[in-house]
Design a protein around this nucleic acid. Structure first.
Lengths: 335, 335
DNA sequence: AAAACGACTGCAAGCGGTTGCCAAACTTTG
DNA sequence: CAAAGTTTGGCAACCGCTTGCAGTCGTTTT
């Protein structure tokens, strides 16, 4: 029954069929209060009958609002981002929007390129673990709606998991097991988080009277673990804190291969509590945080800011709690 | 220097500044052969100077081609899909397009709803592990560009990893270890793959003279493993093939908890070789396949078909090879 | 030298909605 | 019953880019 030549019906088709103007159809469908109930019912009925679907592109063109947001992750392979992606996807959907996903491959240039490319087809960006400089991010904020995850930059809304308090929990845990020194196996040089975690490790260690050493940087992946493990053994470490769980798991494997027993000979702690941290061998003691919540929150911050519901102010920097999950990879210090 | 009032420059701005018509600007930028080299250079120079970026929406509106594709996964939590997502993302980007990601939460209705919603803003859909019926998919193919992963339906392009040959490898491996019977812990009822895997298990078992039993269905997640493990023990199984690695890992944990030793008491095999399969305890014997390649291929099929490069025929059903990775979770049958 | 031909480039009509402005119709008020 | 006010619905102008058609010129063909 569609008056179309095989194409999707438009508001013109609906308008003709219902005997009204396109403007009325448009209002009937999007601005219910603005049109008489009877005509609205008729329009809706006709639209339904014709199988009319509004064309998102056409709708977005005049307003510029696409109801689409982009999420960038620095490495789509890393299970750490699963939670973030899932949370962001859920919340985006809940807001009736669409999520675009892009992998930035640890490259600040690729981040910028993606923004450049998507700018205009997207209402805003959520960047997880951005590798761009503070300055770059600052400049971008002027031109685009932007929200960060696992990164803080003055004036930019963000959601992070508390690394300071979390690191305190880690170090106190190790100290309570009798460890007098810790080694930190660092993540990528450009990673803001890697820097922050090291700072926290050093600060807390100092306060508790432990010595802290930094090794690395190592690639934040399972394969990076071998070098990190060897380096830690070279230091004669009794406890090592890895930049993230991937690295920690890689270290565990290397220790096993080298006949080093965890936790008797050395304790290992990771960050993030990723998938697998609970069933590797031994199960990993790690700092857990609600990263799916961070993903949700980042979307809220972005979309809320967009609607003017919340002012996009500097104080939109949410810090989520973290808690230590103690498993088998940590034990009393060897004597 | 931009003649704009803070907004992005458009081809009108470029046209005015370069002293040509907008149509010339458009052609100069997209259809190089259609315009004199000198004017083209001038246009390009002006566009550059003004910081002109083409508006993807406006470009897509007349043509209907958005250079965007959507990927659906049935459960974004499942690490199995990350290879697929990564491959699809890479290939989409390589083709200069944009990827939209959506979670369908194991629901055929949600798949349909997503298609409905995105139809018009997307050039095509890649659906991984679709839960829709063959008939639904068939109907959709008429109206949308569609490619499947881990699912075959007549006439629809698809990429799957060989489950028949793979299952043969699994059963032969188990038979060679002296097992005389296998138990299959099934996945979701709506899963095409679960059905296929069971069929293959049964067929190959029969051929090799083993008995095969199906249990389940179980949720294809780590949590589903406990029930599956208990059921397998109830059957007195010596070897169990799990619908996927998540389920297999869950079973391993349950066996450990119940004091059942793997592989001495029972052998466990999974499918997919997901992240974690190599470091769970014991490491999991599993059927590996190149799922990132499947993701890439699905995009190629979709985009190639779109450009008319390949005919969107039924024979566009690619089957990727699979190979068994033997690890510690399988051993000789108990006597 | 006139005709035919190409190479460029401009005109203008969309693509499918949204929305400011205005007129018609209907209500309420004095 | 006229004046003022309130709904309701249509007109038409965008949003920014693409593209069929046609016009302008400089060349080549006969």
């Amino acid at each position: 029954m569609e008056p179309t030549d095989g194409k999707r019906p438009t508001i013109y088709d609906v308008a003709r069929e219902a005997g009204v103007a396109t403007s009325t159809v448009s209002r009937a469908l999007t601005n219910p209060g603005r049109v008489n109930e009877r005509t609205r019912d008729r329009v809706v009925e006709v639209a339904e009958r014709l199988g009319y679907r509004t064309n998102a592109l056409a709708r977005a063109l005049p307003s510029g609002r696409t109801r689409t947001v982009a999420l960038f992750v620095s490495d789509i392979t890393n299970p750490h981002f699963f939670g973030i992606i899932r949370g962001a996807e859920q919340q985006t959907r809940a807001a009736g929007c669409t999520l675009i996903l892009a992998d930035t491959e640890e490259s600040p240039d690729l981040e910028a390129a993606h923004i450049e490319r998507l700018s205009g087809s997207v209402d805003g960006f959520v960047i997880a673990a951005s590798r761009m400089s503070d300055q770059q991010i600052g400049e971008l904020t002027g031109r685009h709606r932007l929200t960060l995850i696992s990164r803080q930059v003055g004036g930019v809304p963000s959601a992070i998991v508390d690394h300071e308090d979390g690191t305190r929990q880690i170090i106190e845990h190790l100290a309570s097991l009798g460890h007098r020194s810790v080694v930190y196996a660092a993540g990528p040089r450009r990673s803001w988080l890697a820097a922050k975690r090291w700072h926290a490790v050093r600060a807390v260690s100092r306060k508790l009277g432990l010595s802290a050493t930094r090794l690395g940087p190592f690639p934040p992946a399972v394969q990076g673990g071998a070098a990190a493990a060897d380096a830690a053994l070279g230091q004669g470490a009794t406890a090592v804190i890895a930049h993230n769980d991937l690295l920690a798991i890689g270290m565990l494997r290397r220790f096993t291969d080298r006949g080093v027993h965890v936790p008797n000979d050395i304790s290992v702690v990771g960050y993030d509590d990723i998938f697998g941290a609970d069933f590797c061998s031994p199960p990993l003691t790690t700092l857990a945080g609600q990263f799916d919540e961070a993903g949700r929150l980042a979307i809220d911050l972005l979309l809320g800011a967009r609607d003017g519901t919340r002012p996009p102010q500097a104080d939109n920097q949410v810090v989520l709690p973290s808690h230590l999950v103690v498993r088998g990879s940590t034990g009393t210090a060897p004597s």
